[in-house]
Amino acid sequence: MTAGGHGAAPRAGHLPVLYDEVMEGLAVRSDGTYLDGTFGRGGHARGVLQELGPGGRLLLMDKDPEAIATAEREFGGDPRVAIRRGSFADLAAWDATAGGLDGVLLDLGVSSPQLDVAERGFSFGKDGPLDMRMDPDAGESAAQWLARADEQEIADVLWRYGEERQSRRIARAIVAARAQAPIERTAQLAEVIAAAMPRGKTGSDRNRIHPATRSFQGIRIFINRELADLEAGLVAAMERLKAGGRLVVISFHSLEDRIVKQFIAARAKAPPTDRRRPEPEAFVPTLRAIGGARKAGERELAGNPRARSAVLRVAERLAGVAA
């Protein structure tokens, strides 16, 4: 039994972030239909499934073929479960969602299994091929992109998606390094970035995180089109959520959380009026925010430090209005 009282405790060894808060936010009904758009290794999905009765339905999506293999192995024989490989950005195109959803869960960012496997190329702490693709069969790898992008494009990605203040300096160093040898390993890229940082730089960020953290994050977000997929996925969720259905999103980055926060606010609150402009049409809310941003407590952080940056937001679809 978890601290929040839900019987669907996560599998031993797997720590789904904000588990109790997610279950509370989804408010699972036994006969409802729920979509987990980021299955990962199924920590949250197990909780939802345990709350469902025979008439309930759980739809699972993920870009990652390894995640889908896990879903098929563990849930493929359950008649209540349907599984689809793909981005949650396309959830409304899945026929299984056409009847409407009582809840949508999006747990954004890279999963722990992806970080922990060096061959996926997400972590500068584990040397491996510089890939970073959540779907290894789609698009170009980080190594391929870094081999062709010009200095300005690299700097823009590091600044926009990684919020890296030394983006221009790092981009210059990457271009110089690749002229000597292709950058094909995570350790190579991390070394180039670390060497490019100003000597003697001090400050809390410098003391707390590896110098490659922001750059790796920015490249990963860009390679996987994570922000564009999030924007599309939120719209698709609104299209499929039934009245009273819950939208539950876990973000790990300020750029993601800002998108989610603004998406909910734009549909829950009337925009400010401007006396210099014609009077706008009457505002009709389509979402209701359920509480504010929630973060992991000290007890969870003690067992799962990766939850430190997680932010949960929940909203409920309102009745009688179009998306």
Rank of each mutant, 00 (worst) to 15 (best):
M1L: 15
A3H: 12
G4Q: 11
G4L: 13
R11H: 03
S30W: 13
S30Y: 06
D31I: 05
G32T: 06
T33N: 02
R41C: 10
H44P: 08
Q50M: 13
L52C: 00
G53Q: 06
P54R: 14
G55W: 12
G56Q: 09
R57I: 00
L60I: 01
L60Q: 05
D64A: 08
A71W: 10
E72N: 14
G76Q: 03
D78W: 13
R80C: 00
V81N: 04
R84D: 09
G86V: 02
G86H: 06
D90H: 15
A92E: 13
A92P: 00
A93I: 02
W94V: 08
G109P: 07
V110G: 12
Q114V: 03
A118R: 13
K126C: 02
L130P: 07
D137W: 14
A138R: 15
Q144R: 14
E151D: 10
I154C: 12
A155Q: 10
Y161W: 12
R172K: 15
A181G: 09
I183S: 07
R185M: 00
Q188F: 11
L189A: 01
T202P: 05
S204G: 05
R206K: 13
R208I: 03
S215C: 15
Q217R: 05
G233Y: 07
F252T: 09
R258F: 02
I259V: 15
K261R: 09
K261I: 05
I264R: 04
A265G: 06
P271D: 09
T273H: 13
T273K: 14
R275F: 14
R277S: 00
P280E: 14
T286M: 14
G291L: 10
E298N: 13
L301H: 11
L301Y: 10
P305T: 07
P305F: 04
R308Q: 07
L312F: 01
R313K: 12
A315E: 03
E316W: 10
L318M: 13
